[in-house]
Design a protein around this nucleic acid. Structure first.
Lengths: 216, 216
DNA sequence: CCTACCGATCGGTAGG
DNA sequence: CCTACCGATCGGTAGG
């Protein structure tokens, strides 16, 4: 087993350590892969130490690069944070797509949130829900808030849909969404991949609590 | 009415604006009142702009003071943050005291959380639940985490008590506490005293959602 | 409680 | 993609 793997993966000799954390796979998508690797590294570092306690020199060092190189992929440190947020919101969007396959309002809600929790417990993007929006420029902050409000509206619509089709009891959609999104967005504050529970278990338990609170 | 009040409150002429936001009332407790006024002003500013985006010059200016003066009441900026956290945890402690008057586990939990939400929606202390603990020294961070863990343990005990006395259905105390504390601690992220709902309304709605999820 | 002032950090750029 | 470097901010202190 070890002999085989030694033969099979002929990793090239590295004199200065892996750069870009091996995120570069093909040839044409190099830049995009690098950009994403940068956002991921930054997101993790920001989450671990805080935005202001993480210097761009440190982020660059995580990728075996120097700071000026980062400026080819982002225009400023705030832009780097903005891209973290944008990426996280893309994951939320994907969760909504996934949820559309549900039948009732409650079912769609469950599917959406399960997918969302899965992303949040696996990906670095979890940082964005902890971040201070004031660390971005006013325009960036507005853009993120706008996307967030859109998500909020869609969640409330799902709750209303569930009330209409009889799968969800009569509740205040605004407060209900605030309630469960608060609970869910707090997961990254305490969840660890090395902990006793994996992401799927947490997602199951939370989905159950949600369902018990909302069903008729 | 205006004529009366003009006569009654003979506010002294002020040449340089109110200092310490008029928090100084008696004579002997001056220092403590000033210290609390400082923590309050700092907590509000940190919440509004973020810890690192708020300079001590700005905090001092909020109290019509200069920065060096603050160092009579706190030993560093991190210490100021620490005291914000400590104050917030004192409010949590008070909430637990209040909750002890309940009969069943569920009742105690409801009373505790209602009181806690009332504090969080009224007082500046809400900032601490949003703050990045890494902005304190390692020792300070540990101290706050320790107190927080103690609260967590007590909350889980209340849930267990409720399960034992039959007021709460069978749940996982750890995940259940994480769930509702996540929801509750997120309130300061969206709540505004000028919004359509006051703190008591939010507390009622959340207590209701909690109860529906936990009762047998 | 204030007037200066220092020193370190760090985001960002020049220029190649 | 790197070496060097600038400039501003800001926590903290001296000294009164």
């Amino acid at each position: 087993m070890s002999a085989v793997s030694k033969t099979v993966r002929k990793s090239p000799p590295r004199t200065r350590g892996v750069r870009w954390n091996d995120a570069v796979q093909s040839r044409e998508e190099r830049n995009e892969a690098k950009r994403v690797a940068l956002i991921r590294a930054a997101g993790r570092a920001f989450k671990a130490k805080g935005f202001h306690n993480t210097s761009l020199d440190e982020v660059a060092a995580l990728l075996n690069l120097t700071k000026p190189t980062l400026y080819y992929y982002v225009s400023s440190k705030a832009d780097l944070l903005y891209q973290c947020h944008d990426y996280a919101l893309d994951l939320g969007e994907a969760a909504f797509q996934h949820g559309q396959e549900g039948r009732t309002g409650l079912d769609k809600l469950r599917r959406t949130l399960a997918k969302y929790m899965e992303s949040m417990t696996h990906d670095f993007a979890a940082y964005s829900v902890l971040s201070d929006l004031n660390d971005m420029t006013p325009a960036q902050k507005r853009a993120i808030q706008k996307r967030r409000r859109e998500f909020d509206t869609r969640f409330r619509a799902l709750v209303s849909e569930g009330m209409a089709d009889g799968s969800i009891r009569e509740v205040d959609p605004m407060l209900t969404v605030a309630w469960f999104m608060g609970a869910i967005n707090a997961i990254p504050r305490w969840f660890s991949e090395d902990g006793p529970l994996n992401g799927a278990q947490v997602a199951d338990a939370y989905t159950d609590l949600l369902t018990r609170g909302l069903r008729v």
